[in-house]
């Protein structure tokens, strides 16, 4: 019915027009759409080019061995920020993976269409797009204020809160692709639900779930806003217990890029190049895993 209506509406108008105007409208649409796509690709290329041109000159062995310099000090590297970022991202993903996978499993295997599952699915999508700076404020109230100090733990938790919804979403989507007959076969052998989920569903959806975790890692590795009030940043090696500020790349870039010192700005550009290339590479690898899985 809908089709017939639409087309019957379209047809008389189309016939009523001059041929040339139809042709021009069509051409215009095609050219504009292609142009917009080109602009998108162009901006990505432009950003990468900018990072390479500005960042490559900052590369030296010192970049990876020395700590970030103090104000007015010459030289220096970003070793502490690199290691700090790796630790914070690792902490975030280590916390987020079990929570996200289990929550996704609940939505796909236990909750399914129940009211509670619907609500959680809905709110998870909201959390996925929630402003990350608010998550920083939340963790500040939750951890930094009571503990009386900025800490790497708070930074890790803030990043985990950003990663969880990504993992929940992909885990659920991937588990839903697993055919029900596989689960029934497992259940028919007498396996309890938990065994069916772990041995059958998770195995079948493994590649997709790994992709979800990789995408979440890529997402949190470059997050700056939630770390501003949680992990903070400084120019020293952090303490072993991660209390006090923990230096990290994104906040370091934020502070150094706007600084009046030439060597700080060079370090910021080098850090920006490293972080962007790693994140883009991670995103591409994550997509390749899913692609291979579909081919199989």
């Amino acid at each position: 019915m809908d089709i017939a209506q639409n087309i019957s509406m379209a047809t008389p108008k189309a016939w009523g027009r001059v041929r040339r105007s139809r042709y021009l409208a069509d051409r215009a649409l095609k050219i504009i759409c292609a142009l917009f796509t080109l602009i998108g690709a162009f901006v990505l290329g432009w950003i990468l080019l900018m990072l390479i041109v500005e960042g490559i000159s900052g590369f030296s062995p010192a970049l990876f061995t020395q700590t970030t310099p103090g104000p007015g000090t010459q030289g220096g590297g970003i070793a502490n920020a690199l290691v700090g970022s790796l630790i914070l991202t690792f902490l975030g993903i280590i916390v987020a993976t079990p929570v996200g996978v289990l929550a996704g499993t609940y939505l796909a295997e236990y909750g399914k269409g129940s009211k509670l599952a619907e609500l959680i699915r809905f709110l998870n999508d909201i959390l996925l797009a929630a402003p990350s700076i608010l998550i920083g404020l939340f963790v500040y109230t939750l951890m930094v204020q009571p503990m009386g100090s900025y800490s790497g733990w708070a930074g890790g938790v803030a990043l985990a809160i950003i990663a969880v919804p990504v993992i929940v979403r992909t885990t659920e989507d991937m588990l839903r692709l697993v055919p029900g007959s596989l689960r029934e076969a497992g259940a028919a052998l007498g396996a309890p639900m938990s065994t069916v989920i772990m041995q059958v569903s998770w195995r079948a959806a493994r590649a997709g779930m790994v992709t979800g975790v990789l995408l979440a890692t890529a997402r949190i590795a470059g997050e700056t806003a939630p770390l501003l009030f949680t992990a903070l940043n400084n120019n020293f090696w952090f303490k072993a217990n991660l209390m006090g500020g923990v230096s990290n790349l994104p906040v370091m870039i934020y502070q150094f890029a706007l600084a009046p010192y030439q060597n700080w700005r060079e370090l910021a550009w080098a850090g920006a190049l490293i972080i962007t290339i790693s994140i883009l590479a991670l995103s591409v690898v994550a997509r390749l895993i899913v692609k291979k899985d579909h081919v199989r």
Binding site: A41, G222, A225, P250
Partner: peptide, 21 residues
């Protein structure tokens, strides 16, 4: 993939691109 990678670029990099370029 190219368009999706635009979403993967960290927002601080957009900030640097916006301010300096």
């Amino acid at each position: 993939t190219t368009i999706e990678l635009l979403a993967a670029v960290p927002s601080i990099i957009y900030g640097m691109w916006g301010l300096f370029v």
